[in-house]
Structures are given as structure tokens and as C-alpha cells.
Design a protein around this nucleic acid. Structure first.
Lengths: 203, 203
DNA sequence: ATAATGCTACCTATTTCTAGGTATTTTTTT
DNA sequence: AAAAAAATACCTAGAAATAGGTAGCATTAT
């Protein structure tokens, strides 16, 4: 019987070793390598072509989602399962769009883990299901609005932002007005909190 | 030969299993229990009195530092090793002050891990050494200042916060002034960004 | 016991932001 | 080509926050 060849990439060595040991118990799984660095992981995966790669999102060098995208783009035969601490619909969607075969939270238990790996090996996809909280309206900010918020996050005043982006102060005010209206927020702290809760990044 | 009895608490089950398996390989170590919840862990530890408890900082119920403090206070014989993702001098100092025997990063490798456990078992203390990057000033916010920021994050005005916390508006303003001075931030968005970057939570 | 820190409170002039609007131009979508 | 969305700009009154102070009292460390 052909063993499932698995590669692991996570910046926390403890997770790597934990997974490794978890997998070594299984006699249909063979561990082919690991890395704590995204760039190294990508190279390794391209070279070793494991059946499955378990990739953390946050890694030095290159994040797991970018690696996924690139592997998919290069038509690598390796199926990626994203490992994440975050139950975040955007990450999950990114993972799906970038061609991953799975998205698992790090607090997944051993049984589910192994089940997921076996399912993915047979070509099925398994994505963590997000709870109901995702029902609330999503907020869409325009690129310009995000620009403004980014500048605000750096402590800029309307005037400074206007200068920076070659706008009039009134325009900056209008954008901020629109942002407040869209988000229903009353001050900047509240705005950032809501953006964080809604999982909106300014890139 | 007496085996070292170890308890593990971490909200990420993967870490728990990883550690568990890592330890099971060692024939002088015996695993006596684990939990993903701080409160449960504390009870378990008090009851089972393991030789060593590996505690995560972030856990639902009760954080590892608080547990450490309480175990020390109750003169528990269990020696605590804090497990953390953060190379943060404040956490390390807390761990020391609360009577922990060790502070290890989660990306510690297996060898160092086992070494640390054995050292701690003999009564030695082992704390992660922080790199030079810790040169940048750390920001210490007082509980009251955190209260104010929390309220601000909920979109409250100074007046509303004053009412809420039974303070005068002037006092709220003073706190905000001090917060700005401490953090070197110019507006609320900037403040929240800096707090995030510095890994400061408002609890 | 002394020092340091944290929390509280006040004052004033100035700056910044908000909440209502309206309105033109550019870009994107259909 | 028409419609929709995004980005731009302006006005005004009023609300809110800032920057510069000073200072008393309570609690915690040393």
C-alpha cells in the first residue's frame, strides 16, 4: 500500500514536532520533511512533491496562503491543507480560491486531523465550517477609504492626509464621513475595532 | 527511578498532543493529564499535583500566568513552566515574579524542551533569553488607562466614559493625554495600531 | 518610612472633527 | 451608451479633542 507523503511547515517548531509525532503513529503516512520558513518550505515542496503539505499561514519568508497560490499556479501535485489559528472567513476563502484542499484550525483534535488528511488524500476537500456569527453584514470599503484609514492609523490629521494624497481636506472629511456611515462607528478606535472584528484588513 | 509527572494546559489541542507525544517518548516522564481550559487546568493541577505543569499563557477560563500565581500562593508543589508564543519581557518578568520555574517559547525545539524539563525537575529555573530587539521601549498601560481605551473602542465620547466610570470629563481627558504621551500616538486609530503592534491586549 | 506610581480633577486657548448638506468628475459595470 | 459606484470638492455650525499646564490623594514597592 502506498503511503501518504506529508510535508509540514509551521514557524512553531512545537507544532511541527507535534504533528510529526501525531503522524508517525499512522502506518499509512510518511513524513517527508518540514520547515519553519515559508520560502524554504515552498522550495522543499516543489522539489519533494509530497502528497500533502500542511502549511501554517503565518510564517517568516512566505505565508502559507501565498505558497498555496504559487503551488497551484505551478501545477504542483501536492495538495495543501492550511493550518490556522484563525477562524476567519477571509482566510478560508483565500485558501479555497488559491486551490487548497483544506483549512483546519490548530485546535482540531487528532482524530479530525487524521480524518481530514485521509479525505484530502482521496481528493476530497475539507474546510473548517464557520459558526453563525458570519451572518452579520459585511462592510465594503473602497480602496480610497482604506487609504484614508491607513493614514489615520499612522496618526495623520486630515490636513496631512490631504497633502499626502493630494486631495483637499474636504475630500478627506467626506471619505471619513462615508466610512463612519458605512461602518456605523463613532470614533477611530471604534472603527479599528469593528474592522478587526469584521476581519477587514487594510492590506 | 521516579518518573517526572507532567501536566499540560494549552488551548490548542494540537500543541497539547504534540507535547504529549514528545514526552511519551521519554521513559523518565509520565503524562498525567491535560486541559484546554485554564480553570479546569488549575483544578486538575491542585488535585493531581504533578511535578511539572506546562502552561500556555492564553487560555479560556484563566491564563497561565494567573494560574502560576495562584499555585504559588497556595504553595502547590507543582513547578510551572510557561509556554508562550511571545518573546515579551513583561510576560517573562510576570512568570518570574509569579513563581514559575521556566518560560519557553513554543518554537523551542524538542531537545531544548526536554532539557528544560529535566533542569526544572532538579529545581533549576530556565527562562528564555530575550534578543536585542527588546531595546524598543515597552509600553505599560495602567488598568484605568486600559478601561478608557476599551470604552473608546466602543465609540464612547469622553463625556460618556466619564458618566460610565463615574469620573469627571477632565479626568478622562487626563488619562487620554497620558495614554498619548506614553504611546506616542496622535489619534485613536494610531493608538490601536500601536497597541496591536506591541501585542498589548486590553483583556 | 519614603519614594514612586496611579488615579483623580481642574483651567484655557487652539485645533480638529462631526453632521448636516450639495455637486461635479471619473471610473466601472451592465 | 446608460447607469451605478467611486472619488472629488465645498459650506457651516457646533461638538469634541488636544496641548500646555498644576495638583491632591491613595496605593504599592522598596
Amino acid at each position: 500500500m502506498k503511503k501518504i507523503r506529508i510535508y509540514i511547515a509551521d514557524d512553531h517548531q512545537l507544532i511541527v514536532e507535534g504533528l510529526q509525532r501525531l503522524l508517525l503513529d499512522q502506518d499509512d503516512i510518511i513524513f517527508v520533511g518540514s520547515s519553519n520558513n515559508g520560502l524554504e518550505a515552498e522550495q522543499d515542496i516543489l522539489q519533494k512533491e509530497p502528497d500533502i503539505a500542511l502549511l501554517d499561514i503565518r510564517m517568516p519568508g512566505k505565508d502559507g496562503l501565498k505558497i498555496t497560490q504559487n503551488l497551484f499556479h505551478l501545477q504542483s501535485p501536492t495538495k495543501v491543507i492550511i493550518l490556522s489559528m484563525y477562524e476567519d472567513i477571509r482566510y478560508i476563502n483565500d485558501a479555497k480560491n488559491f486551490g487548497a484542499y483544506g483549512y483546519l484550525l490548530k485546535n482540531t483534535c487528532r482524530e479530525e486531523f487524521l480524518e481530514a488528511i485521509h479525505l484530502v488524500q482521496t481528493g476530497k476537500k475539507i474546510f473548517h465550517k464557520i459558526e453563525a456569527k458570519q451572518t452579520k453584514e459585511l462592510i465594503f470599503l473602497t480602496p480610497r477609504e482604506k487609504d484614508i484609514i491607513k493614514e489615520l492609523s499612522h496618526g495623520k490629521t486630515n490636513q496631512e492626509i490631504a497633502d499626502e494624497l493630494s486631495l483637499s481636506v474636504q475630500t478627506v472629511m467626506t471619505h471619513r464621513k462615508n466610512i463612519r456611515a458605512k461602518t456605523g462607528t463613532k470614533n477611530l478606535a471604534n472603527l479599528l475595532l469593528v474592522l478587526k472584528e469584521q476581519g477587514i484588513d487594510l492590506e
